[in-house]
Design a protein around this nucleic acid. Structure first.
Lengths: 206, 206
DNA sequence: GCAATTCCGTACTATATAGTATCATTTTAT
DNA sequence: ATAAAATGATACTATATAGTACGGAATTGC
């Protein structure tokens, strides 16, 4: 790769990083191209030489954030591990991830723009939560077939577990409340795991 | 009330209705005051004689929608009824309500504006979901004390039930996906009730 | 009937911001 | 060294829209 192309890639990445920050913090309407250029230390002409419109820039930022989101969560499930710790580990990672300020901001952005840009929501779901759901379902299906979980639909199991992890804290965070806004105490991954096994565990082994 | 005041009230209500529709469908940034005035069949001057700014109008619309949301859901829980049908009825009403296009639109609006207008999110939660949660918790506490449910924290029970009702379908709807976007089949209230009793039911009676 | 409001319609101002044009300066390729 | 490409600074255009001003018409109170 020539030095020109290399620099071009770096510049593009820098633009995306700065713009993402603005979009996450100020939303789509609240972010101005001039502000992005200023925050970048660059000029508007450069901006338009990389992205042909504000919509373009926004789409590229979302794209990048989705990748980051998915990548961090996909690596969580280890089908080889013992069942109960695996479930608990999944809950812990998943809950930590969806509560990160970055994740909340991304989610807010997508929900808020889902009328203006409905495609973004679909893409996000299919590459993010959809992938997690599919992986978890496959994992649980294997456990059912191995007789370590009740013989009930794995997809339902996955969605129940994810719903419990999302819980109410996610809603509160999306609406901008403090995570422990009274009278709430977020449930521990251990507790969620216990409930999950009460629902779907087989009698003998755990 | 004089006829003047009466007409003034009607006009105000008409403005709120029209503006709400625009805000719900187009979002805050996507709604223009001129469009509201036009859709109203009125003029901009009148608009500003009722609300001193776009922000004011927006706040009033949200206020109204919150009331409608809460009112419809609060009447659901009947502490006197038999336990299992009561739970199932709650699930049915709650799920139907949160999936209404109106509720989705309101939720989107609040989440999308939770950076610009964080107060709105808090108010909504405290008057809407917060009230539901409190009522359900009180109801469940009574059942626990009557020995018809396991002796576990009623608040947790309530949040588990609500989480299961929200489930994944709510997320999909918020992101603008079809409610049955593959591979999803929304769970029935009956099924959720079954799971709930598997978690918290006492052995003998149901 | 008459006076006071209220409303509509329209034209207007002020402002913010997406996007363009220009030119000097720096960086890279040959 | 020199040409080509990219960058930065600045000024600019075009447009959308929040909010204002005002005159005439309708509605209401007395």
């Amino acid at each position: 790769m020539s030095k020109r192309e290399e620099r071009r890639g770096e510049r593009r990445a820098a633009i995306l990083e700065t713009a993402s920050q603005f979009f996450m913090e100020q939303g789509f309407a609240g972010t101005t191209m001039s502000a992005v250029a200023a925050g970048l230390g660059g000029s508007k002409g450069t901006l338009w030489s990389y992205f042909s419109s504000k919509e373009d820039l926004f789409a590229a930022c979302i794209e990048g954030k989705i990748e980051a989101f998915r990548a961090e969560l996909v690596s969580v499930l280890d089908p080889g591990a013992p069942l109960r710790p695996a479930i608990e580990g999944f809950c812990r990672s998943f809950m930590a991830k969806i509560r990160e300020p970055n994740s909340i901001a991304l989610y807010r952005l997508l929900v808020g723009q889902s009328m203006r840009a409905p495609e973004a929501g679909r893409i996000f779901f299919e590459r993010g939560p959809g992938v997690i759901e599919a992986l978890l379902t496959a994992f649980l299906r294997g456990q059912v077939e191995a007789g370590r979980l009740r013989d009930e639909p794995p997809l339902e199991m996955a969605q129940v577990l994810i719903s419990l992890c999302n819980g109410i804290s996610h809603q509160r965070l999306l609406l901008g409340l403090a995570p422990d806004h009274a009278p709430y105490k977020p449930p521990a991954p251990k507790r969620i795991t216990e409930l999950f096994f009460r629902l779907y565990g087989v009698a003998e082994a755990t």
